[in-house]
């Protein structure tokens, strides 16, 4: 009763394609479910008003602002640090002990779960540095969380720039710094931006770390030291407290649409980048 190789081939191809199809179906189902239940409730006033009665009525404007502030600040902090690290690793040193240690640090950081970042942010930023539950504490925590992603994508982007570009630039008498900023970074920018855009996406969908660092105030954050509630946490609260499933799914739709857009932008940038370097 041995199955012939040709039949095994057929069976496996069908099985594997079934797995892939189920995966894509799962994605479509999740997107469809969220948008079907949420989009009808997304109106202009939902996007621009403040919530009333815990979010049962009104809109999600303060959460949109809060999410933008947290994600924006986080990337603003992690972006330069991550890109600088990548520049150092690729242009300013040779592979050796130091680069190995730096990479080890980044790799380990990448594997740490967000709840641990939350615990750390809570004792360090919120309590030890006295920031309280605030946009700033949340942004700093997320900055550390996305740093490895930015380092890795920037490094890959810089490495993909042909060596000849910088050789020519250096040969023409430019300093290394001039070469890096005017030649290398310019060519690598779509790749770097892709990493940053994906990091923004990660910040937007994060909940556990922000619950412990940014707080859950419903009001509009007026400064970086105010507490804020991000969209993801607002969705969680509306859903869990059973305040308003309709508004919860509407919030989730906004979140999903933003994440879709972010992924599209990243994908488009990546394709341009690949097209150019090849």
């Amino acid at each position: 009763m041995r199955i012939s190789p040709a039949n095994t081939q057929r069976i496996m191809v069908v099985a594997l394609w079934t797995l892939a199809a189920m995966t894509v179906f799962t994605l479509l189902f999740i997107l469809g479910y969220v948008l079907y239940h949420g989009l009808p409730h997304v109106t202009w006033s939902f996007l621009t008003e403040s919530p009333r009665r815990m979010g049962k009525e009104g809109g999600i404007f303060p959460m949109i602002v809060g999410t933008a502030m947290v994600a924006g600040l986080a990337v603003l902090i992690a972006g330069p640090i991550g890109v600088a690290t990548a520049i150092y690793l690729t242009e300013y040193t040779r592979e050796g002990k130091i680069t190995a240690i730096i990479r080890f640090g980044a790799d380990c950081l990448a594997g740490i779960p967000s709840i641990i970042f939350g615990l750390f942010g809570f004792v360090f930023f919120v309590i030890t540095l006295g920031m309280g539950l605030s946009v700033m504490a949340g942004a700093l925590t997320l900055a550390i969380m996305v740093l490895p992603t930015i380092i890795r994508t920037s490094e890959e982007a810089i490495r993909a720039v042909p060596r000849s570009f910088s050789d020519v630039s250096m040969g023409l008498g430019a300093t290394r710094w001039q070469t890096v900023t005017r030649v290398v970074l310019r060519s690598a920018s779509p790749g770097i931006v892709t990493g940053i855009v994906l990091s923004i996406g990660r910040c937007i969908s994060e909940t556990a770390a922000l619950m412990l660092t940014a707080g859950s105030a419903l009001r509009m954050p007026h400064s970086a030291l105010d507490s804020c509630r991000t969209l993801a946490l607002h969705f969680y609260t509306l859903m869990r407290e059973g305040i308003s499933p309709a508004h919860a799914w509407a919030t989730a739709s906004v979140l999903i649409v933003v994440i879709l857009l972010i992924n599209l932008v990243a994908y488009w940038l990546m394709r341009r980048f690949v097209a150019r370097t090849v």
């Binding site: 502030m69 924006g72 600040l73 007026h222």
Partner: peptide, 8 residues
């Protein structure tokens, strides 16, 4: 925006 926010 962030800084402005801080100062307001």
């Amino acid at each position: 925006t962030a800084l402005g926010g801080c100062r307001s």
